[in-house]
Amino acid sequence: MAAGGDHGSPDSYRSPLASRYASPEMCFVFSDRYKFRTWRQLWLWLAEAEQTLGLPITDEQIQEMKSNLENIDFKMAAEEEKRLRHDVMAHVHTFGHCCPKAAGIIHLGATSCYVGDNTDLIILRNALDLLLPKLARVISRLADFAKERASLPTLGFTHFQPAQLTTVGKRCCLWIQDLCMDLQNLKRVRDDLRFRGVKGTTGTQASFLQLFEGDDHKVEQLDKMVTEKAGFKRAFIITGQTYTRKVDIEVLSVLASLGASVHKICTDIRLLANLKEMEEPFEKQQIGSSAMPYKRNPMRSERCCSLARHLMTLVMDPLQTASVQWFERTLDDSANRRICLAEAFLTADTILNTLQNISEGLVVYPKVIERRIRQELPFMATENIIMAMVKAGGSRQDCHEKIRVLSQQAASVVKQEGGDNDLIERIQVDAYFSPIHSQLDHLLDPSSFTGRASQQVQRFLEEEVYPLLKPYESVMKVKAELCL
């Protein structure tokens, strides 16, 4: 049975990233139509530049190519590739079939990587351009969430054990800070992308030097003109047959890092959902379990974690691919890159769409948070109580021993009897502590235990987050809708 299948058929496997999760716009960027249309555009740009620099290419040939950029006979191309065992030459023939007058000058002087690699770089750039505003929107939604809850005390956790208090907004800023680093890295790697350009079979530009009869300047002009037509500021000066596969490492490393950030955020949300302090959106008709109707599973956060793990592992592909590119190139890269580049971007696209949807509907339960604080705060307040007693004339050592005994009794009630923490009640009825009984409410005010959390939130948002989001103001209103 021949390899390949009808990918629109229910009898043929289709990647869930495309069929179930990723956005239509990201799927289109990695589609065959987008790819092969870009090949034709690159052939047109090459012909236009070659004509401008004096090669015998007519206006009629150029116009014929322009008129057929979208006229792609995919069936013919597939048949040609089956016959020739070469995808680029299959599309040269297919393009030439609908451009008979231009057929002889299509791909003039070029090698397969002229269309293959340059198209990949265009796709990487455009895919990054799709991700950047999506990530900015996630940051914006979380920034709104953090600002609104900047002063809401909550129990902090280290080692997932109760620690000092923080605020809900401050905790959210930990998430935002990681995503801001990801946004900066995505922008950097996007701006650092260079075009492969017009380089020939081993990167020496020998074929173009021959076409222009040894004119170095025209060869350099050709490279520059096509690079500018493709919208790049610069091209690699040095290439082998391909652009260095280190570029793929750079791009997928940034995406993998984004995956790590999203995994951490969504894990926190899942843990908070278990504590009943916070939940992701839950639709009115949504079913959490087929057997347990009360369940409210954090399905979206779980999906993000599941896909983020996949995204983090994909960076190993370009690392290994770059390491086995012998001399000017081997074909070890080809099949692998067809999979890992598309999957990385479709996965990143999915987790950003999902995280935006989550961040637009996060639900906080202040009463649950308050109750958990009441359970733990008495123990945390013991040092403040000791200091207040010393100020009232008591002995630190005597007070410490009193607190120690009462704390152990209260802990026994919590752990052995399943009761509430009654340390404060014990202190309130103990005559030894009568000098500070009137101060206990103040000493137990949760806001006095959150330090500068709310001020940190305000400063972080104003100095770091809002300036970073400013270039994306025009796209901030787009909502994230999930079908599944």
Rank of each mutant, 00 (worst) to 15 (best):
P318K: 01
L69S: 09
R426A: 10
T330D: 03
D441S: 08
L255P: 04
T354E: 04
S306L: 01
R452K: 07
Q356D: 07
E417I: 07
N336Y: 02
F157P: 00
A90D: 00
R374D: 07
L108W: 15
Y243M: 09
A230N: 04
T202W: 01
S359N: 11
H86M: 01
M225L: 14
A103H: 09
E277R: 02
L222P: 01
D215G: 08
K218W: 10
L42I: 11
Q439L: 10
R190N: 10
L423D: 04
E64H: 09
L461K: 04
A235I: 09
T350P: 07
E80T: 13
R372G: 05
L186H: 11
L258K: 06
Q458G: 13
M181F: 13
H86S: 00
G203Y: 00
T201V: 09
L211S: 08
M292L: 04
L423H: 06
P378N: 01
E79A: 09
S67P: 08
F36S: 14
A235G: 13
K477T: 13
L346R: 06
E279M: 07
S9L: 14
P56L: 13
Q41A: 10
K391Y: 11
R337M: 03
V315N: 06
K170C: 03
V226L: 15
R85T: 05
Q210N: 14
D32F: 11
T450I: 13
N421D: 05
L377P: 01
T167I: 04
D223K: 01
L311G: 03
L222Y: 03
Q455I: 08
L443R: 04
F232K: 02
T267L: 08
Q41W: 15
A260S: 12
F157M: 09
P378Y: 04
V315Y: 10
L209M: 08
G259R: 01
S289D: 01
F95T: 08
S31W: 02
P293L: 02
S253P: 03
L209P: 01
A47C: 06
N68T: 09
L461E: 01
K295E: 05
L44D: 04
P435R: 11
A480R: 14
L186A: 12
D441C: 08
C172S: 11
G418E: 01
T242S: 08
R149S: 10
Q161M: 01
F28E: 08
S257W: 08
S289T: 02
C305M: 05
R459C: 12
C113M: 06
Q63W: 11
T350H: 12
H263L: 05
F449W: 06
L252S: 14
Q456N: 06
Q286W: 02
R337I: 03
T119R: 02
T58C: 11
A260L: 04
S448E: 15
